[in-house]
Design a protein around this nucleic acid. Sequence first.
DNA 1: TTTATTTAAGATAAAATTGTCTTAAATAAA
DNA 2: TTTATTTAAGACAATTTTATCTTAAATAAA
Lengths: 144, 144
Amino acid sequence: MFSKATEYGIKAIIYIASQSMLERRVKIGEVVEHIDSPVAFTAKIVGALVKVGIVQSITGPYGGFYIDRHRMDQIKMIDIVTAIDGDSIFNGCGLGLKECDDEQPCPMHYKFVQIRADLKEMLNSTTILELAEGLKSGKSILMR
Amino acid sequence: MFSKATEYGIKAIIYIASQSMLERRVKIGEVVEHIDSPVAFTAKIVGALVKVGIVQSITGPYGGFYIDRHRMDQIKMIDIVTAIDGDSIFNGCGLGLKECDDEQPCPMHYKFVQIRADLKEMLNSTTILELAEGLKSGKSILMR
DNA sequence: TTTATTTAAGATAAAATTGTCTTAAATAAA
DNA sequence: TTTATTTAAGACAATTTTATCTTAAATAAA
Ligand code: SF4
Ligand code: SF4
């Protein structure tokens, strides 16, 4: 459903957020140990999320990544997905057709539109606070 | 939403079906002219669909691809998608996690499940007959 | 039978995605 | 100030996906 980059990004964010709830900054090595992802690739992705302000970072000893606690309920899944994959998920028609007659769309059109709208709604309504709380409470895990 | 291979496959099938309604066999060159796709790549994909019996073909002069008219309402979108992409669309969790606690899934779980079920339902309920009729009647087009 | 036309199959190549490695910059502690 | 630690950035490499090219096989017509 998402690219590997987005998958790693989401998992990394969830882990970082769960630790930020405990006032802990985490190093990239710790992150990938908990989400089972390639370290350098993950570092690049998390770095991109730092650039757009979703994650905060501090360099040097005792540094690491963290997320402002009071912003966790404002960061939605959609922010992460679009930061990494762009808005490609929401563009174009499910058949990849360049154009078609909007007035009389093909039989798949409204079904595609509905599914995409549902996906968007989900990404828009799910906060990383929710996901991080799910992880912290043991409701979900990021690897085994 | 789908791979390029699947996109081309779907479009090719729709075009071939629309012509088979007119009792016309079509050559791969004609197909790609109408769906705007790379000819050799498309040929390979349509060839795979021939192998699984979704499309029929005749080699040599006056040959080409066609689809049994009476089978068009039995071939579903899902058959094409799974023939090309496998069932990867339906597997695993949307976050790409290997495992998690089924008893207490994370907040995204049911939303993901619902979206995937909707997608599956759409692919399962849409026949190529419908799509080909949409194309033939001008309700949709495959390129411009 | 010979030739032309078409699909079939598979090798090769290009592009995109995924992943690694190296060096630089920042920063804290000794 | 020096050193160790960490993120930042970007070059490089591997893999997967997408696309092309070449040759073979089938078949119909001349
Ligand atoms: S009408 Fe059909 S072809 Fe056109 S955008 Fe919608 S799904 Fe795609
Ligand atoms: S509960 Fe969450 S992590 Fe587990 S399969 Fe469902 S969406 Fe994925």
